[in-house]
Structure formats: C-alpha cells, structure tokens
C-alpha cells in the first residue's frame, strides 16, 4: 500500500483532500479568525473594528479583570498538576492490577472505563446533586468554600478519566514481554526493581501519552466546572476556560477581550504540552 501511494501522487492527493479540507474548515480557518478577532472590538458579528493590541494590553493592565485571569490561571495550573499526578498514578496502579492473572479482569476494565462515556455537564450536575446531598447533612454546600469545589472537581475528573488512561496503560503493559521480566528475576531483581527498572521504562510511551492527555484535559476543563461550581464562591473555582466564557458572553463589547484571553490560553497550554512531551519523550526507551 505504501508503495502504491508513493508511486501515485494522485492517490495521495485524493486520500488527503477530505481530511485536509475538514482540517482547514474546522480548524485553520476558525483559528485564524480567532486570532484576528482578538485584535478587534465587536458587539455583534456585523461590526468588527480593528483595534490592534489593546485587548492584550488589558490582560496585563493589572485591573480586576487581569487579576481574575491570573487567579484563574494559577487555580487551573494547580488543578491540572494535581489531577495529572493522581490520575496517572492511580490509572497505572489499576492497570498493573488488571493485567495480573485472575478472574474478572475484563469485567473490571469495562466497569472502570464506563464513566468516561458520560458527558461532562451531565456528570457534573449529577455529582453536584450527590455532593450537595451529603454536605447538607453537615449544613454545608459545595459552593460555600473554594476547597470544596476544588476537591469535588478533582474527584469527578479522577472518576471520569482513570478508566480511560487505564486502558492505555493496560495496552502498554501487555506489550512488555514476560521474557524480560523473567530475565530480570533470574538476575536477582525483586518485584520493585522489575517495576521501576524494566516495566516503567518500557511503557514510557504510554506514560507520555497519558500525561499529555491528562495535563491538557486539566487545563481545558470546562463542562464539569460550569456544571458543578460555575466559579463559586467568588471566582475561587473559576478555571481559565470558564473565565474566558464569562467574559465573552457576560458583558457586551468584551468579546474581543475574551478572544485575546483565549489566544493567550492557547499559547500557555501549547507551551506546557510541548515542554511535557519533550521531557517524557526523552525518557522513553528506544
């Protein structure tokens, strides 16, 4: 097949057109438009005035708006780091457990994966009701303290994503040949050493993939955030995406400003993702 394609550039073109077209329509064009709009002021889609970098200046001007953006950034970053570590450690542990030889592993894999099939808003709403139900016993509610919202969001994200990452780790672990482990064992390695010196280096590609996914998911989190806390109390649980959304829809004439925030948001997430990939990929065994 590879040869056929190389011989016939026509095939290459024909196969690529739909994807490239979809990519341009669905990604390149809106992305370019988004950058252009971040340099504009507009209330409605009809009258768009170009104002240069004023929206960007506002982000770094030090007013309430930029303070909130910064606050959201730190909250989001902290959230992303905590969720990345917890999800990956737990998903890996469960994957190790479920690749051992005992009955029912397939059933458990399915069960752990299932929460991932539900949509974020629905899930957030149901969890909110559950958590509020429990907290009301103690005369409290989810949005009374920032730490409640943070913990609840972490719990929901763990519940939702561990299963998905677990599947990736299971696939990675199954690719580790038993011969290697056995050889290590014969050489006198204990099970701890086998795990850290043999298994983990070999599943490093899965690890970089999963950390990439969880880190970016953590940064981009929106559905659960709006459904569960909507930023309450007093913006303490407002993540970057929600902050941008509120600016865009909440105040007339601030859409360009929100758009500029979104561009900055893109740069931050992009930069962090690239850094993370560089670091984890450098640890991958060849």
């Amino acid at each position: 097949m590879g040869k056929t394609l190389k011989k016939n550039p026509l095939y290459l073109l024909i196969f690529m057109i739909p994807t490239v077209a979809a990519f341009i329509v669905g990604f390149v064009y809106p992305f370019g438009m988004g950058i252009y709009l971040s340099l504009c002021k507009f209330k409605s889609p009809k009258h768009i005035d170009f104002i240069g970098l004023r929206n960007y200046e506002k982000i770094f001007s030090g007013g309430t708006q930029s303070e909130r953006f910064l606050q959201s950034f730190w909250f989001t970053a902290f959230f992303a780091i905590v969720s990345t570590i917890l999800i990956n450690v737990l998903a890996f542990a469960i994957a190790v457990l479920l690749t051992k030889n005992f009955g029912g592993t397939t059933l458990f894999r399915t069960i752990f994966f299932m929460p991932n099939l539900l949509g974020g808003v629905l899930l957030g709403t149901i969890w909110k009701i559950l958590i509020n139900g429990v907290l009301s016993v103690y005369k409290d509610s989810l949005t009374n303290k920032g730490i409640y919202g943070f913990t609840a969001l972490i719990i929901v994200l763990l519940w939702q994503q561990i299963g998905y990452m677990m599947i990736i780790y299971v696939a990675g672990l199954q690719g580790v040949s038993d011969d290697l482990k056995e050889a290590a064992k014969i050489d006198g390695a204990d099970s701890r050493q086998i795990l850290f010196k043999v298994t983990i280096p070999l599943v490093m590609p899965s690890i970089s993939m999963c950390t990439f996914l969880t880190l970016t998911n953590g940064f981009k989190l929106f559905d659960q955030n709006i459904a569960m806390t909507a930023g309450l109390p007093n913006h303490k649980t407002e993540m970057l995406a929600l902050n941008i959304y509120n600016t865009f829809y909440g105040t007339r004439g601030q859409m360009g400003f929100a758009q500029a925030k979104a561009v900055i948001f893109f740069l931050i997430v992009g930069l962090i993702a690239i850094l993370q990939l560089k670091i984890t990929q450098s640890k991958e065994a060849d």
Partner: peptide, 9 residues
C-alpha cells in the same frame, strides 16, 4: 433550610 444549605439549592 439553613442559609449555608441554600447555597446548594
């Protein structure tokens, strides 16, 4: 309900 519970209603 208590005021602190109303925040979740």
């Amino acid at each position: 309900v208590e005021p602190s519970v109303a925040t979740g209603n």
